[in-house]
Structure formats: structure tokens, C-alpha cells
Design a protein around this nucleic acid. Structure first.
Length: 273
DNA sequence: ACGGAAACCTGGACGC
DNA sequence: TGCGTCCAGGTTTCCG
């Protein structure tokens, strides 16, 4: 689920909770979420290490440790929970995959589909998934000119380019649809066919959609103790995503769902050219 | 070398 | 109620 705004909100909320804590031990409940090469070394690598901070790279959450670092990727359903003296055990119906017992409290990586990933790496920033990320979508340094350059180098549909993490990091299926709706652009347009005013509109749309999402993700603040909390209620800020057949909030035409790169794109046939 | 499709997994929603 | 089908907010790998 989480795109850049959600992961950013997680990082900010988690930081004061675990920074400076020591990892006592790590328990692999469902090993499939750990890539095979380090499936049996993860626990050994993190035991006794201190958590130096909490960072985000695109949709990845990183915990730099006194030795190496832990990398979380949530994919669709991955989730983090926090336990301590006040709520010591995960509810029995929760699919815990990995537990990190700290000197105070416990972090649980939870994922019913086990598509998310947890790994340790000597140099987390160097794994391919992170090393090859494009400029971050939430960064104030993502200038119009940067976006223009990215779009000009591809004749793929603009929606598909927005999803490509090696071009821009952090935008997923929801906020790409939302941004294109806001910019009044047809998601099927070849990226390199956009003209300067359209690129400016798209840049503005991406920035405002992500900023609005980040605000919503932080208010109310993430509650790692509540398994049912995980970013509930975000759909109320969505203008097109998941609204197939419902009236466009701008022009009233019925929102359509189309397939692009084996994903759903939601758009308005009336006001997105 | 590239783009499209499948694989990875499970559960919830929906229709009959 | 039960069964089958479709769908899922992501990334990597495979194949033609």
C-alpha cells in the first residue's frame, strides 16, 4: 500500500520511538519475507546492534544500525506494529512475519500476503532497488525542469513513467492517478508529448497531491499499536482512485477504469483531455 | 535490449 | 451457505 507520503509519515512517527534503541534479538516467524540469501543470517546480523535512525528512500523504510541496516518494503499489505509492556503480545489473528525485540518494546513486521520484504544489508543504500531510485517525489529538489527531462526521455504513457521508481521514486498507483486527474492530463499520453504548460501542471499536481497525502497521513498520527489503524480513511482525499462509475468531481462525467502496465488507472473521460 | 506478462501470496468482495 | 471468479495501493524475473 504505502507510497512515499505514507512511508514518510511512518518514518517520522517511528523515529522517536526506536532511535537509539538496541536490538536484543530478531525472530523470523515467516521466513519467506526475507530474501533467501540472508534468510538465516538476518537474526545474527542485527542482534545487539543499535538503531541509529529511521530513513525513507522512495517507498523503502531504512533503519541504519551500528552495523549495516535493516530495509523494509511494504509492497501491498506490509505493516508495522509496536508492542511494549502495555500491549505485550500481538493479537492471535495477526500474521506476524518478523519480530525485532528491542531493549524497550518490540517492532513487528506484519503481512498477510507475505509479499513485503525485510532484509539486512551491510550497505543498505547500495542494494539495486534503492541505488537505482530516481529523484524522490517528495523532495523539494524535484524541480519542473527535472520532471521535464524525465518525461522527455520516454514515449511510454505518462502514467507508466510516473510509476517507474528508477525515474521518480515514491509515486504509486494511487497518487499517479490522482496527480494526472488534478493536472487534467490523459494518463495514456506519451510522456514525451507533454508540452511545457502541461508539465508545469503535472509538477504542481504531483507536489500538491503528495503534500496533501502526507498531511493526512500525519493527522491523526500513525498508531503502531493498533493493527486496524494502518492508514485508514485516506480514501476520503481521493478524487478518482477507486471511483469507477462515479461522477467526476470536476465535470460530472463517469470516472473510467483503464488498464495500463497490468495496473488499474482511474481517469475522467471528460476533463482529462 | 526491450516491453509485456507472469510470479510472488492470501484474503476480501461480489455474483450466482 | 458455498463456491467460483475477480481484484488488490509493488517489484523482480522471465520470455519472446
Amino acid at each position: 500500500m504505502p507510497e512515499a507520503p505514507e512511508v514518510e509519515a511512518l518514518a517520522r512517527a517511528l523515529r522517536p520511538l526506536i532511535r537509539g534503541r538496541k536490538i536484543r534479538c530478531c525472530r523470523l516467524v515467516h521466513p519467506v519475507v526475507v530474501p533467501a540469501p540472508q534468510r538465516f543470517s538476518l537474526a545474527r546480523n542485527v542482534r545487539g546492534a543499535r538503531i541509529l535512525g529511521v530513513k525513507r528512500r522512495g517507498k523503502y523504510l531504512l533503519l541504519p544500525l551500528s552495523r549495516g541496516g535493516i530495509i523494509f518494503h511494504f509492497r501491498f499489505d506490509g505493516q508495522l506494529l509496536w508492542f511494549d509492556e502495555s500491549n505485550n503480545t500481538p493479537p492471535p489473528n495477526i500474521h506476524v512475519d518478523v519480530l525485532f525485540h528491542l531493549d524497550r518494546g518490540t517492532i513487528a513486521f506484519v503481512d498477510p500476503r507475505h509479499l513485503g520484504r525485510v532484509e539486512w544489508h551491510e550497505s543498505p543504500e547500495q542494494i539495486p532497488g534503492i541505488r537505482f531510485l530516481g529523484p524522490d517525489a517528495l523532495s523539494p529538489r524535484l524541480a519542473v525542469s527535472t520532471l521535464a527531462g524525465i518525461l522527455s526521455r520516454s514515449d511510454h504513457p505518462v502514467k507508466v513513467v510516473l510509476l517507474d521508481q528508477t525515474r521518480i521514486a515514491g509515486i504509486g498507483n494511487i497518487y499517479s492517478s490522482e496527480s494526472l486527474w488534478r493536472a487534467r492530463l490523459d494518463p495514456r499520453r506519451p510522456a514525451n508529448s507533454l508540452r511545457a504548460p502541461e508539465i508545469r501542471r503535472l509538477h504542481k499536481a504531483v507536489v500538491s497531491v503528495l503534500r496533501r497525502a502526507l498531511e493526512c497521513c500525519q493527522n491523526p498520527a500513525p498508531d503502531f499499536r493498533d493493527p486496524s489503524w494502518w492508514f485508514t480513511g485516506l480514501d476520503r482525499i481521493l478524487a478518482v482512485y477507486g471511483r469507477e462509475g462515479k461522477p467526476c468531481r470536476r465535470c460530472g462525467r463517469k470516472i473510467r477504469r483503464i488498464a495500463q502496465a497490468q495496473r488499474s488507472t482511474f481517469c475522467c473521460p471528460g476533463c482529462q483531455e
